[in-house]
Amino acid sequence: MKKIIKVIDSIIDFSAILASLFIFCICFIVTWGIIAREFHLKIYWVEPFSIYMFIAAAFLTIPYTMKMNEHIRVDILLSKLSPKVAKILDTVLMTFSLVLFLYITKVTYDMFWSSWTMKTKDLSIIQVPIWIPQLFVVVGWSVFVLSIFRYILAIWFEEKKSESKEIIGE
């Protein structure tokens, strides 16, 4: 089991690193857009690229957020229950989530497929085919499903992590 968790972890981490690089790029792309506009250079790609990198980063990082246990939840009840009952409740909730996001991955794939076959383009000046950003959404959801699966495994097969997890951000 530990091995499976490890493999899934490396997929999730890779996806997070990809997302990080996109965020890094966004800052520089936006900055370049401003400079280029000052010099009247053609920068049609800046707006769509920054938006699509943002979309890609957002979806690729959702699984990592799951792994770091940072999807916000109200744990008043979970923390009151006995550890065993809490574990069972958590498993039920996450199995439900697994099914839910499996469905969402499937229907997102359908959306991607329809954009691909209909050759739908966006309304930006460079007319990017929208299956490109949508592909990242499909990949993001797929890895997310894996990360929920990993979470369920971790409930039963991994020792509880230490409490002093650093909280960062909003």
Binding site: R37, H40, L41, K42, Y44, E47, L123, S124, I125, Q127
Partner: peptide, 24 residues
């Protein structure tokens, strides 16, 4: 040398062909 906000591909092309810089 004018920066002009346009909303569609053809209008942007028009601005560009006329010598301006289309901005979205």
């Amino acid at each position: 040398d004018k920066k002009i906000r346009t909303t569609g591909p053809l209008m942007a092309k028009f601005v560009e062909l006329s010598g301006g810089t289309p901005v979205s």
